[in-house]
Write a protein that binds this DNA or RNA. Structure first.
Lengths: 246, 246
DNA sequence: ATTTTTATAATTGTCGGACAGTAATACTAT
DNA sequence: ATAGTATTACTGTCCGACAATTATAAAAAT
């Protein structure tokens, strides 16, 4: 049943709105399957193309999605990575510089480390220490080091138990790490300083020492700046290039 | 030119990816017009339907859009409100607590104040002072005070010249301010402490005193916590309710 | 009576082509 | 130049079709 044709909004948008509404009032609950495109086209009295365009909108808003390799569309709960990707894209388009991201991380990360010192669970502490162990074995493999550093900071974020900061970080980490990889690949003894810093951070967390955790996290991030200095990396205008290498 | 058909991703998604990439590397700059659907279909060697579906995705990601009543699609600068709304929604769904948002703001805001002290432009300083003036005249109007505080912090964010932190803030401010409004509405002499803090912050910025700016911004945020204490507001579980009042 | 295999139906991705209604543009007449 | 008009270009929507794949029902095998 097509909505009033006087209000000239494209059909695909009208249909999107109606389906969104159904999802929001749980007329369609998370996990439910959508009818097939043909059925939808039939029941809305429009052509399948219009339905498809509406579906694309729903999909991109993360309201529906499908399991890998499956055909059926399901109503889904919003996922994290999609949002973070969108934030990253926005920052790239806004031409945010590496320096700005650096500053932001320098602001957020130490604070999260301090929170982690207060709230870390034994389980996460264990994971952090496992990360240290692995790092010790990869001291000269820049590629793995980058991954491990990323994992380390993700664990730290999780340990902080602050999802607001975690969400804030999300969009930036993807932009930050490509640059870090470059540094790790070009500095001599790449993993050494990193490992020392990570060890101090974990140690401080284990001791529940907020100040120390914060301090070492800050030093660790500041090391990044030093690395850029050494390699002559320009904080002003490299974000896009680096992100593309990713 | 269709991409490798071995990698089974739908054409509409491949085309979306390619167009997104072009926008991100500014091959298509903000303000540029997109070719017509027919042209795109021709140049990508696909059917117009596929192009249309790709366009729906771009549109929903706020990468392109069209002026009201116009036909031409333009590359658009991502609008802040749309993204921030989505971040807020996600946080709400994730059931982030007011306490977490408070902590995040407490982390970010002082840092931004310090940056503002370094980088503020005369123009923004002027706006900040204008905000103070208006605040002095609204000391007992909680509604206006809330708006003014919001504006104040937006100006501060702008003055910091750090867009990474600005984007980080976006999703949270919408969640934070409803709570603040509640406080301002229920505390006696609502605007007094706020104004004093704002004045100190602006003063410090004018003096280019990073430390002082940071300190006063921190105190200002911490005041919020005190207010919650006084009113017995629970930092743990009020986010959803407050956000809805907005 | 389950599990496995196989045949059949349903569904998605993509294509070709068409047409009405409207914005954009070129063209004319002041 | 400006205003008004005729053309053209483009979007929204529809019809219909088909290959490739997934889902399902039916048949066969354990």
């Amino acid at each position: 049943m097509i909505a009033n044709p006087l209000q000239r909004a494209p059909l695909y948008r009208q249909i999107y709105d109606q389906l969104e509404a159904k999802i929001v009032n749980r007329e369609l609950k998370v996990g439910d399957a959508l009818p097939s495109e043909t059925d939808l086209a039939l029941s809305y009295g429009v052509h399948r193309s219009s339905i498809r365009e509406a579906i694309r909108l729903l999909e991109e808003n993360d309201l529906i999605g499908r399991a890998a390799g499956k055909k059926k569309l399901l109503v889904t709960a919003p996922k994290k990575d999609k949002l973070s990707r969108r934030i990253s894209t926005t920052m790239l388009i806004d031409e945010v510089s590496l320096g700005e991201v650096y500053e932001a991380i320098l602001t957020i990360e130490p604070s999260m480390a301090a929170m982690a010192a207060e709230r870390v669970t034994p389980e996460l502490l264990e994971k952090l220490e496992a990360n240290l162990d692995t790092t010790r074995e990869a001291l000269n493999d820049p590629e793995r080091l980058t991954t491990l550093d990323q994992e380390f900071h993700n664990l730290l974020a999780e340990a902080s138990k602050n999802r607001a900061l975690q969400w804030s970080r999300l969009g930036m980490s993807g932009l930050f790490y490509p640059a870090e990889r470059k540094l790790l690949a070009n500095l001599k003894e790449p993993g050494k300083r990193m490992l020392v810093a990570h060890e101090h951070i974990v140690g401080a967390i284990k001791d529940r020492d907020k100040q120390a955790a914060e301090l070492w996290a800050r030093r660790h991030i500041e090391d990044f700046l030093r690395g850029c200095d050494v390699l002559g990396v320009n904080l002003g205008d490299m974000l896009n290039d680096l992100a593309q290498e990713n």
